[in-house]
Amino acid sequence: MTYEGIMKEQLTEIIKQVYNKKNRNLFTFLTGAGISAESGIPTYRGIDGIWVKGTKFHKPEEFGTFAYFKENPEEVWQYSLFRKKMFESAQTNNSHHEIAAIEKLLQDRFHLITQNIDNLHRRSGVERIFEIHGNNREIKCS
């Protein structure tokens, strides 16, 4: 059996056990950049990650600041809009759909906490979601 098959089997068993308990708990899932890597969105800390490489000329600890934005708004907007376009053209993957299917099974006992801003969980059908780093669906001008 593959690693994926074993993990799916274990998750199914955990859900069955908790689902049948007299006092049922909520199920909370936490996701980060890794779940969207299969969709072509680079992670932040992987070998080619955004926070590892930074931009062409800058490290993220300087590029990702308001002070840098005030000095270089056009560069920051270009990068932000490039990422927005990348997110819009990315397709949801099997992992996103598996989580959406689990939500349909568990209904109001399901919650997803994600660090991702790419909107792929919502596009896969997940509704009970907390986007703790915000999202890239809405951009507000400073």
Rank of each mutant, 00 (worst) to 15 (best):
V52A: 15
K53A: 07
G54I: 01
T55L: 06
T55S: 03
T55G: 02
K56E: 06
F57G: 04
H58S: 11
K59F: 06
K59T: 10
P60H: 04
P60R: 07
E61S: 14
E62W: 11
F63S: 02
F63D: 02
F63G: 01
F63Q: 02
F63W: 09
F66D: 04
A67H: 12
A67M: 07
Y68E: 03
F69M: 04
K70C: 13
K70E: 10
N72H: 15
P73N: 14
P73L: 10
E75M: 08
E75K: 15
E75D: 11
V76L: 10
V76E: 02
V76R: 09
W77Y: 15
W77H: 10
Q78E: 15
L81T: 04
F82M: 13
R83S: 03
K84M: 08
K85C: 03
K85T: 01
K85V: 00
M86N: 04
F87C: 01
E88R: 09
S89D: 04
S89G: 03
A90W: 00
Q91M: 05
N94K: 14
S95Y: 10
S95E: 10
H97D: 03
H97L: 10
H97A: 02
E98N: 10
E98H: 13
I99D: 00
I99C: 01
A100V: 05
A100P: 03
A101C: 07
I102E: 01
K104V: 01
K104R: 15
L106G: 04
Q107W: 14
Q107D: 15
D108C: 10
D108T: 12
R109I: 03
R109K: 15
F110L: 02
F110M: 03
H111C: 14
L112I: 05
I113R: 13
Q115C: 01
Q115R: 07
N116P: 02
N116R: 06
I117L: 02
D118M: 06
L120Y: 02
H121M: 01
R122H: 13
R123L: 09
R123V: 00
S124Q: 03
G125M: 04
G125R: 04
G125A: 04
V126I: 12
E127I: 06
R128N: 13
R128T: 07
R128D: 03
I129V: 15
I129M: 09
I129E: 03
F130Q: 09
F130D: 08
F130I: 07
E131A: 06
I132P: 01
I132K: 08
N135F: 09
N136P: 00
N136S: 14
R137Q: 13
R137N: 11
E138G: 05
I139A: 07
I139S: 07
K140S: 13
K140Y: 12
K140M: 09
